[in-house]
Lab assay of single mutants.
Amino acid sequence: LQLFIKTLTGKTSTVEMEPSDTIENLKAKIQDKEGIPPDQQRLIFAGKQLEDGRTLSDYNIQKESTLHLVL
């Protein structure tokens, strides 16, 4: 599924993920695209901070969801 990652600067990146992927996997993919180390990334979806060990489906993240990346 395609996700949009929006940064505080207003920049939006697109990443392709599976519902079974963990937040950790997602942060690794963001690191590949943006060069931001996972330990500096905080991802927010629906007002919640996402935890590394959980999966996208745990948070009911659907295709074309927008996640907010806070550093």
Score class of each variant (00 low, 15 high):
Pro37Ala: 09
Leu67Ala: 02
Asn25Thr: 13
Leu50Val: 04
Gln62Asp: 08
Gln40His: 11
Thr66Ile: 14
Phe45Val: 03
Thr55Phe: 08
His68Val: 14
Ser57Val: 07
Lys11Leu: 11
Leu26Phe: 03
Gln41Val: 10
Val15Glu: 02
Ser20Val: 05
Gln49Phe: 14
Lys48Glu: 12
Leu69Met: 07
Tyr59Asp: 01
Leu8Thr: 13
Glu18His: 13
Tyr59Cys: 02
Glu24Thr: 08
Arg54Gln: 09
Ala46Ser: 09
Gln2Ile: 15
Asp52Trp: 03
Arg42Asn: 11
Glu64Cys: 12
Leu1Lys: 04
Ser20Cys: 07
Glu16Ser: 12
Gln40Trp: 09
Glu64Trp: 15
Glu51Cys: 07
Gln40Thr: 08
Lys63Glu: 11
Gln49Asn: 11
Asp21Trp: 06
Arg42Leu: 14
Glu34Cys: 14
Asp39Gly: 10
Asp39Thr: 10
Gln62Tyr: 09
Gln62Met: 12
Met17Phe: 11
Ile5His: 01
Gly47Gln: 04
Leu1Asn: 04
Thr9Val: 07
Gly53Ile: 07
Gly35Asn: 07
Val15Gln: 03
Gly35Thr: 02
Thr7Leu: 15
Lys33Tyr: 08
Ile36Gln: 03
Thr66Cys: 06
Lys48Gly: 06
Ile61Met: 06
Leu67Ile: 15
Lys11Asp: 08
Asn25Glu: 12
Lys63Tyr: 10
Leu26Asp: 01
Glu51Gln: 10
Gln2Leu: 15
Pro37Asp: 07
Lys63Pro: 15
Leu71Ser: 08
Ser57Lys: 12
Asp58Ser: 14
Lys63Asp: 15
Thr12Ala: 06
Pro37Ile: 04
Asp32Val: 13
Glu64Pro: 05
Pro37Gln: 06
Leu3Ala: 01
Leu67Glu: 00
Ala46Phe: 09
Thr22Ser: 08
Ile44Gly: 03
Arg54Gly: 07
Ile30Asp: 01
Ser65Gln: 08
Arg42Gly: 05
Glu24Ser: 13
Gly35Ala: 05
Glu18Phe: 14
Ile5Tyr: 08
Asp21Cys: 04
Lys29Asn: 04
Thr7Gly: 10
Gln49Thr: 14
Gln31Phe: 15
Val70Tyr: 14
Thr12Leu: 12
Thr22Asn: 04
Pro19Met: 09
Lys33Trp: 09
Asp39Lys: 11
Phe4Cys: 05
